[in-house]
Design a protein around this nucleic acid. Structure first.
Lengths: 344, 344
DNA sequence: CTGTTAGCGCATTCAA
DNA sequence: TTGAATGCGCTAACAG
């Protein structure tokens, strides 16, 4: 009885401990504590059980419960990393909402090794009920195999792949268009676009929105695509756009927030006054924007809602629902700060 | 046999499946797959087992294994959030190193609810083997109760509390001192310090290092402590220090990276040229520093090592080791950029 | 070298 | 309204 196998403190109380304390069978305790429809213990017994569980600090062991139910009440989240504030905002939202629904969240990043392997492992080891995948770099082929094997256990975040039926995406194109429209309204007619790799689904959509909006605004688009989408990429992208003095754009749209920061740095390094000589606007908002000089104008995306919807979709599928494609309904909106101004 | 309980794809293969495929007992499969010392199967059998496991895509179920072994091979990480690059760097390091050791990582942030409750739940539900706690806001009392109950399962990150014997800390005081020394070397004699809440252990240590270094440099310290430690806190802290034109400091030390960014913004909002009229230096380094204008001088802390040591300590204790206090040996180092200059 | 047995903690039959 | 029995998948102790 008192054989603690490890020197790591007292044993966690189990159902049996609670049952023994009350003098009933474990199955009854189990039913009462879970509010099982058929747990109609007498009011007397019921309250004694609840009391004992409370005083012993009983908590159901998730491993045992998971084994029995073939469910883990845990979700997995795969991120490229925390480099972008978009990913940190997403992680926060997912963690918060998962917790609200009683689910744990296990984290996977690219830093831990091959992301496809990470997903497979988590799924096949029964570590999680479903994986939320917010990585654009996993090959379509790998995702297809995954979706074939576990169609109800993989949700793509802000990415669409034919073979994967479950996804939640933002209105990236609309967001890019919104930025362009604002710049056009300010009188800009030569606008540069700084984008990340075209292999990323988000970039395709942002670029598409950018192009369409440019067309209907009748403005000249100068676009550049970089390998990365971080500060450095934004910096060199902007540098490239601003190099030729002849046809220099009067405004720059950056497809990610860090790229916007990098673009701002590049402009200042080149001695261009922002916003007097160059307007800059970035996709996705972050607190940092307000503390740059000049403060960066952004288009805010409903990232929090993306996380919530992704969790909901995953849980729905775990409960037997069919995979589906969700477009987050909330519209992106402009947050105008000091990096944009009317063209002179 | 073929009763898939759910419409979520094929059942995961179990030990029994592998055993059946080879025609041996499950226990032998288990031993072989785990390289158990007593799994000396014949070379023949051994290879057939490995082959079958491979072709079936067998992966041991962590819930079953965890239940049996009373270990989860999972660690928990509690963070205030992702607001500071220090926390994202830490999360990345911990995740990466845990994965390298075969451990999963479950995430908890303050956003999910009462942090103390989060820790307790994860521990008592058997969700994790140990919790790495990187939150300064949990009350000492709560930590003490936790440490009493599970002394071998809680590791404090960059925080010391009497009652908690397991912790890993950085040389925060040295880092602050390093910043001051550099400023002193540049000829600064009136230096302002912008700190977060004194209730945080890190702040106590950073402030201590600051004060001591100021004393030995014979410089005048003007310090201010804020409620927060984010951009906004740095902004208002710097504003306060710079308000009085009379005794204005010629340099500012910011106790966190975001505070450094905020201080820079404040200086610029007040029309002060950095570094000509004011030098700024911040604790902790981040990519962003190089893309501010001017680029921010920082003192880099070995955060990656902090994460690694924390994981190691947790695993060591899980294996029966005693709790201990670890000081990360790597020294902080200065990364000089453009926000610091000799006083005129 | 390999098989048998038992049990981790829980939820779910079925029976009373 | 409550109890007894069973098994989720795995590993460890003990046989053979």
């Amino acid at each position: 009885m008192t054989t603690d196998r490890k020197p790591t403190g007292p044993r966690r109380p189990t159902l049996a401990d609670v049952a023994a304390a009350v003098g009933v069978h474990t199955s009854l305790v189990s039913r009462v504590l879970r509010d099982d429809p058929r747990g109609f213990a007498s009011a007397e017994t019921r309250s004694r059980i609840l009391e004992a569980a409370e005083s012993l600090g009983y908590r159901a062991n998730v491993a045992a419960r998971g084994l029995r139910n073939a469910r883990t009440t845990t979700l997995g989240l795969l991120l490229p990393g925390f480099t972008s504030p978009m990913y940190t905002a997403l992680a926060k939202s997912v963690e918060e909402h998962a917790a609200a629904r009683g689910y744990g969240l296990v984290l996977g990043t690219h830093a831990a090794g091959d992301p496809h392997e990470t997903i497979t492992n988590m799924l096949m080891q029964g570590r999680v009920d479903a994986m939320l995948v917010a990585s654009g770099r996993i090959e379509d082929k790998a995702l297809r195999r995954l979706a074939e094997w576990a169609p109800h256990r993989v949700v793509l975040l802000n990415r669409q792949v034919r073979a994967v039926k479950a996804s939640v995406v933002l209105r990236d194109a609309d967001a890019a268009a919104l930025a362009v429209q604002r710049l056009a309204d300010l009188g800009h007619r030569r606008i540069g676009g700084v984008f990340g790799p075209p292999s990323l689904d988000t970039m395709v959509r942002r670029r598409h929105g950018f192009r369409e909006a440019m067309r209907s605004a009748g403005a000249d688009a100068l676009t550049v695509s970089l390998e990365g989408r971080d500060y450095a990429a934004g910096f060199s992208g902007a540098q490239r756009l601003l190099a030729a003095e002849a046809n220099r754009p009067t405004a720059i749209f950056a497809a990610t927030f860090p790229m916007g920061v990098g673009a701002l740095a590049a402009a200042q390094a080149m001695g261009l006054a922002v916003p007097e000589q160059l307007s800059i606007i970035a996709l996705h908002d972050d607190d940092l924007a307000g503390f740059l000089t000049p403060a960066l104008t952004t288009v805010a995306l409903p990232v929090k809602e993306l996380g919530i919807q992704a969790v909901e979709l995953a849980l729905d599928m775990a409960a037997g629902g069919e995979p589906r494609r969700v477009v987050v309904p909330q519209s992106p909106h402009l947050i105008e700060r000091a990096s944009t101004a009317a063209v002179r």
